[in-house]
Amino acid sequence: MFKEVSLGQYYQADSVIHRLDPRVKLVGTLLYMISLFVFNNIFCYAVAALLLASVMMLCKVPVGYMFKGLRAVLFIMLFTVVFNVFFTTGDILFEFGIIHISKEGIKMAVLMLVRLTLLIVSASIMTLTTTPNRLTDGLEKLFRPLKLFKAPVHEVALMMSIALRFIPILSEETDKIVKAQTARGAKFDSKKLIERVKSLIPLIVPLFVSAFRRASDLALAMEARGYHGGEGRTKLYPLKYEGRDFVSYIILALYVAVIVFLGIMSARIVAFLTPENSYLTLFF
């Protein structure tokens, strides 16, 4: 019932993308997402898609996995497409009763679709190629400067990795409790919403009690093994930048430069490419 809970859907493979420092991947994905939001013209998207395609080629993850994430947002995608197509005003291309489809509407819908796809696929690639542990390590290192403002960076990172470690244990426990309560006549599959919510109480209460007990045990075990906060800790796998990481940063910088350039110049390029009344204007 709860077996399919899987966070951090890591796909084990041996590729350059897998070996990249998690910080590079985090910064890269973030910049990439920002670039998709700031500039929305076809040239920028073309360059962005090109970059994504080359990363996809390099990362040795089956394409199906990368697009899996899209299923979750399928509804949102349909929603945006429908809204943009039917409710954007502009040059009417087609009209039927109250329905009117404009050129701008179609353009917006297509751009949104492309943007969402690129966003989701890029985020999927990051989680598919980075273990949750490396991800938290990367976050810890990246946010280290916040320590100056007394932010508990190390603690939050440790909490995240412990949470990830306990997800399968707690989901197994949930399973056990569900079975135990079902055996005693509890029903978890009522059709009525209120009853269904109520039926969760005999599940949640024991789960919380046990989670707290585990937390207290774990704290004791950590203390017994000499844990005393992030001060003076070393790492089994410290994050260290290597040649490929610097190369990736350079590629990233180039990408940003190209995107910014295209973003600013797009109007002129469009004007240059499309003489008045050309059919091509539909695309821009």
């Binding site: 542990n133 045990d217 075990a221 093994r225 800790r233 796998y237």
Partner: peptide, 19 residues
């Protein structure tokens, strides 16, 4: 279950020496 901290065996064994 309540005393293993790492998500991989080697990372867990390393926890003490890391501290």
């Amino acid at each position: 279950d309540n005393q293993i901290i790492g998500q991989v065996v080697d990372e867990d064994v390393a926890f003490g020496p890391e501290n």
